[in-house]
Design a protein around this nucleic acid. Structure first.
Lengths: 217, 217
DNA sequence: TAGATTGTTAATCGATTAACAATC
DNA sequence: TAGATTGTTAATCGATTAACAATC
């Protein structure tokens, strides 16, 4: 069967899609049926041409003078983001950040469901956090296989990052959402998305000082 | 006084600096005095040439055959990141994520001290979170001015993002670390660093499916 | 000395932005 | 129709990567 290869969408474009979705929802609630790239750009502080390029990438088609039909646009964006099916994830490290993520309802909207919490500390194991019991990390690999869970969320202290990642890999996990600053060594079968708060903080400092320099120290 | 303009460092480079610092610390504990770009690259999964470019940008100078002196390198990195002085921040939105950030000790290492917690919900106001009392958001602008706080951390639900940002701006804040998905409209005097978890999650999905495609569906 | 490593200069690559014809 | 908006094709820009001479 000849499968026509879908043009792969640049990652920076993909990252902007959630904010486009937010705008589309807002427009829907305002009662309109279409939205132009200009309007989206204005709202997000982007260039209209960039919005059009991004939307073209997901296959959305607009109409001159009207813009993009909200319903169609939403469908195209969701499809491009891979939000058609829900994904289940295990979270390792039920500390402050881990608990916060486990308690955050908003991820359901982005197709993520946290179905297991793991920790290595006996002070936490057995407790319930937002209705989910915290299990010993020892049980992770077997459960991951049995439940067919493919995503891992890593929120352990950085000293334990490697160790925890090893458990996820042993469980056959395919993708890791890594909130530790540690760069993980994973094989070619596994992908990692890094959320690096230290990097972000330092970027903020830099923007601040650049900005001050711009207007004379 | 003729001030020689410092070459501004690319943001992607700045964002990698914290992970370089982590490697340098690790090397120090291992008892060595120098480290090569090759060694750093190997550890982080980068190209040696990129590491050298990055290190050159912060003014670090290495020696052929030896690499970079850890002590000097650390000093140069810290300076480039602007970590010489500590920065105080107010956090708005003492929910799950906000509390987690307030409780995270690791930020001190990156020069950040959270000195005020604010929330609009009377169920939270007056409570103490990790030793800091949660105050009413109403008091934020005045306190920010009085205490000279210049950084704001935004962890409110997205519906209240604009409103909370307005309070920070009223308080004369210069930089916002924004954990809401909402793109804030701030004037030219204020910088925003976005931590967009939805964007990150969607990027992870994309990497997953790209990866699967690469090895035949 | 030989060879590993730095640092500079040039080439490549990918994303953003610009220009403009097509369209409703 | 006139004019706003799309979408394509080309130009620009910035970061990454390559090539290689300099250095210890």
């Amino acid at each position: 069967m000849a499968m026509h290869t879908v043009e792969s969408i640049p990652l920076p474009t993909i990252r902007r899609y959630p904010s486009y979705v937010a705008i589309v929802h807002k427009a829907r609630q305002a009662g309109v049926t279409h939205i132009s790239s200009t309007a989206i750009a204005l709202e997000l502080g982007l260039e209209p041409i960039q919005v059009r390029k991004d939307l073209a990438a997901c296959g959305a088609v607009g109409r001159p003078r009207r813009g993009f039909a909200l319903k169609e646009l939403l469908k195209a964006l969701n499809k491009a983001m891979g939000l058609e099916n829900t994904r289940e994830a295990f979270l390792v490290g039920a500390g402050n950040l881990g608990s916060a993520l486990a308690g955050y309802k908003g991820f359901e909207r982005w197709g993520l469901r946290i179905v297991g919490l793991f920790d290595s500390s006996s002070r936490v194991i057995g407790k319930r956090i937002y209705g989910i019991e915290v299990l010993s990390t020892e049980r992770l690999p077997e459960l991951a296989h049995r439940m067919g869970v493919r995503l891992g969320i890593l929120t352990v202290p950085s000293e334990r990052a490697r160790q925890a990642a090893a458990l996820l890999l042993a469980g056959g996990i395919e993708g890791i959402w890594n909130f530790t600053g540690v760069r993980l060594q994973v094989g070619p079968h596994v992908v990692v998305e890094q959320v690096d708060l230290a990097a972000s903080l330092v970027a903020l400092y830099n923007k601040l000082s650049e900005q001050k320099e711009r207007r004379g120290e």
